[in-house]
Simulated scan of single mutants.
Amino acid sequence: MTENIRLALPVDAPAVLDVSLRAYEPIRELNIHFSAAAADLQLVLNNITRNATYVLEENGRIIATVTIRYPWSDPDQSNPYPFIWWFAVDPEYKRKGIGSKLLKYVEEHVLRDQVKAPAVYLATAERHPWLVSIYKRRGYRVFDEKIHQGDKIVFLRKILNESLYQITENKVPINNQ
């Protein structure tokens, strides 16, 4: 078994769409309105070309995907931290640590070590039966809520570098680094 994590390319859009639609089936069944749950090929292609979409492959087959939307890529963005979204694992690979491996890679290797992001955040529907608790176990903490299409959406943040986070939040003067 050969695993590889890499940035998605436009040619990967059909495979990313397939994994996403199958992984988001429970979201659709819960009638939660997330764009990834009802994506089409053009939407996936736009996501891959406008954001940093990572895939985890096993023997050349995409089995998980996650996207990082950087604050500078969205002019309406008010949060200074990268946003994780469109996180999906092929249902055949659920509960095997694949999603954790991909998320850990993105949080630590990409965001903390390469980008030097102080923190990262994501959002999910509060009524989803397990997502909020999974993210809390991974170190994410709720910092905001809002209603979106009738659902209470919770925003969760994870601090990746405490000293940079304190500077970003203006809690430590820059000259005291």
Rank of each mutant, 00 (worst) to 15 (best):
S35I: 12
S35V: 12
S35F: 09
A37C: 11
A37T: 08
A37N: 03
A38Q: 15
A39E: 08
A39P: 03
D40S: 02
D40P: 00
D40C: 01
L41I: 14
L41T: 09
Q42V: 15
Q42M: 08
Q42A: 13
L43I: 15
L43S: 08
V44F: 04
V44E: 04
V44W: 06
L45V: 03
L45P: 06
L45Y: 05
L45E: 06
L45K: 05
N46C: 09
N46M: 13
N47C: 12
N47E: 08
N47T: 14
N47W: 10
N47G: 06
N47M: 10
T49M: 06
T49N: 08
R50Y: 02
R50C: 10
N51I: 00
N51E: 11
A52N: 12
A52K: 07
T53L: 04
T53E: 07
T53M: 10
T53Y: 08
Y54F: 15
Y54R: 05
Y54V: 11
V55M: 04
V55N: 01
V55T: 09
L56E: 01
L56F: 03
E57F: 06
E57H: 02
E57L: 12
E57G: 01
E57S: 03
E58S: 15
E58D: 15
E58V: 15
E58F: 15
N59P: 06
G60L: 05
G60S: 07
G60Y: 04
G60D: 12
G60T: 04
G60C: 05
R61M: 01
R61L: 05
R61N: 12
I62W: 03
I62N: 01
I63S: 03
I63H: 02
I63F: 04
I63G: 00
A64W: 04
A64S: 07
A64T: 07
A64E: 06
T65F: 08
T65H: 09
V66R: 08
V66I: 13
V66E: 10
T67Q: 05
T67P: 02
I68Q: 00
I68L: 06
I68V: 15
R69Q: 14
Y70E: 08
Y70H: 07
Y70I: 14
P71W: 07
P71K: 09
P71D: 12
P71Y: 14
P71S: 05
S73I: 12
S73H: 11
D74W: 09
D74N: 13
D74A: 07
P75G: 11
P75I: 07
P75F: 13
D76I: 00
D76A: 00
D76H: 09
D76C: 08
D76T: 02
Q77D: 10
S78L: 13
S78E: 12
S78R: 09
S78N: 13
N79E: 12
N79S: 15
N79P: 09
P80C: 08
Y81P: 00
Y81M: 01
Y81E: 01
Y81G: 00
Y81D: 03
P82C: 03
F83A: 02
I84Q: 06
W85I: 00
W85Q: 12
W85R: 14
